[in-house]
């Protein structure tokens, strides 16, 4: 039959690769019980689900694994692993598969977000723009809302207790969404700061599946926060 799988010629490179790079994945432990499928929001989209994905490894369906778009519909939410009796981390296996794909065959926007992130932030706006927007919005609030005349939005304040980041969407698309957070922090009275060098709260380099890119961007952030000498790193999402 046309779609017959000849197991005597079963390919094991991909399966072994997963086991090499991610030994605790438990890939082979799958009981094919279907618990993941029933809990997966991406199940039965494009005819795939976590169980079938794992089965393709077991049966050596390497071409299919390396070409399916399902790995971009799976959101790596980890709900499968949450209940899986064998604790199989399908999400991380998906990341590995994404990372094995040549960059030019990955969803363009996803890869671009990461490339931009490596350069500073995922939107690609210059850091000066962020500084300017924050200052502008702060000034406007102080003027329009007299009760908040003392509002602060410190940037690069060395020695502040808290470092704060901000999703790049706010300074670029909806800058007014930054104000409520400032007001809360002001009311609580903590000593905080942004960094003009690394202010983006997202890290899109996790998603394309290149751990090196993820690590590189994270190291940059860590350097920035430690350089400021902040005791706490607040993530806003």
């Amino acid at each position: 039959m046309e779609n017959t799988i000849d197991l005597s010629r079963r390919k094991e490179e991909l399966r072994n690769h997963i086991k090499d790079v991610f030994p605790e994945s438990n890939l082979d432990y799958c009981l094919t019980c279907g618990m993941c499928v029933s809990g997966c929001p991406a199940a039965d989209i494009e005819g795939l689900d976590p169980r079938k994905l794992l089965r393709m490894f077991v049966l050596g369906q390497e071409e299919e694994l390396l070409s399916t778009r399902w790995i971009y519909t799976c959101t790596v939410c980890g709900r499968c692993k949450h209940a899986c009796p064998m604790g199989i981390d399908v999400g991380r296996i998906v990341y590995v598969l994404r990372g094995m794909r040549p960059k030019d065959q990955r969803p363009a926007n996803l890869q671009r977000s990461c490339e931009l992130q490596k350069a500073g932030n995922s939107t690609g706006i210059p850091n000066e723009d962020f500084v300017w927007v924050v200052g502008d919005v702060l000034e406007e609030t102080r003027q329009n809302e007299p009760e908040w005349a003392g509002l602060q939005a410190p940037i690069d304040k060395a020695g502040a207790e808290y470092y704060l980041n901000q999703n790049a969407k706010e300074p670029t698309v909806e800058p007014e969404e930054m104000v409520p957070l400032w007001k809360i922090l002001h009311r609580v009275g903590i000593d905080w700061t942004y960094s003009s060098k690394w202010w983006d709260g997202a890290n899109y380099c996790l998603f394309p599946g290149d751990p090196k890119d993820w690590e590189e961007t994270l190291r940059k952030q860590v350097e920035v926060v430690d350089a400021l000498g902040c005791r706490y790193y607040i993530n806003t999402e």
Partner: peptide, 21 residues
């Protein structure tokens, strides 16, 4: 449940799949 847009799905552009998810 995941919102269906995480893990890069919003950036990847497969809108129909993302909404199904």
């Amino acid at each position: 449940y995941c919102c269906g847009g995480g893990g890069g799905a919003l950036q990847s552009g497969f809108v129909q799949n993302r909404r199904a998810c």
